[in-house]
Amino acid sequence: MAPEQAVVGAKALGARVLVLVHDAMGDEPFARALRRHRSGADARDLARADPVAPRVACLPTGRRWRYAD
């Protein structure tokens, strides 16, 4: 899924936060197969430009997301 699709889909579902799970996987071969389109930073930048888009949580590898984040 491209960043544009992720942001639009989360917005359509009424999500307040979009947590990108595949973006923090690193550069292992399996992760590269999942990441076919740009990065989570691209989704974050797109969401910041839209006042009603959800907040995008870009987590580093190994970090868990908590609602308070």
Rank of each mutant, 00 (worst) to 15 (best):
L34C: 00
R32D: 06
A10R: 01
Q5E: 15
A41T: 12
R66I: 01
D69H: 03
R66L: 10
R63I: 02
V52K: 07
H22A: 11
M1S: 13
T61D: 13
V17T: 15
R66K: 05
A6G: 03
D23M: 01
S39Y: 11
R36K: 15
M1K: 12
A43N: 11
D50F: 00
M25I: 00
P29R: 09
T61M: 12
L18A: 07
R44H: 12
V8I: 08
V17D: 14
A31D: 05
V17N: 14
H22W: 04
D27G: 10
W65V: 03
L20W: 03
A68R: 08
V56P: 10
V8D: 15
L59G: 02
E4M: 09
L59E: 04
R35G: 08
R38V: 05
L18M: 12
H22P: 00
R44S: 14
A33T: 13
P51N: 04
A15F: 14
A49P: 03
Q5I: 04
R66Y: 11
R63W: 07
R16E: 15
R35E: 06
G14I: 07
L13A: 15
P3F: 04
F30I: 10
L34Y: 13
P54S: 07
R64V: 09
R36D: 09
L13I: 00
R38A: 04
S39V: 12
R38G: 12
T61N: 06
R63T: 14
A2C: 09
A68G: 03
A10M: 09
T61C: 06
A24D: 04
R36Q: 15
R35D: 13
A15C: 15
K11S: 05
R44D: 14
R38M: 04
G62F: 01
D27P: 01
V56W: 14
L46I: 14
H22K: 11
P51E: 02
Y67E: 08
D50K: 03
R35K: 15
A41D: 13
G9L: 12
K11F: 02
A68I: 04
A24I: 01
A10I: 03
P3V: 08
Q5L: 13
P54H: 10
A10W: 00
G26C: 07
W65C: 01
D27A: 10
Y67L: 03
V8E: 15
A68D: 09
D27F: 07
R36N: 03
D42Y: 13
A68Y: 01
D45V: 07
D50V: 04
R64E: 11
G14V: 05
D45G: 00
A31S: 13
P3L: 08
G40R: 03
A68C: 02
A68F: 02
A33Q: 15
Y67C: 00
A2V: 03
V21Y: 12
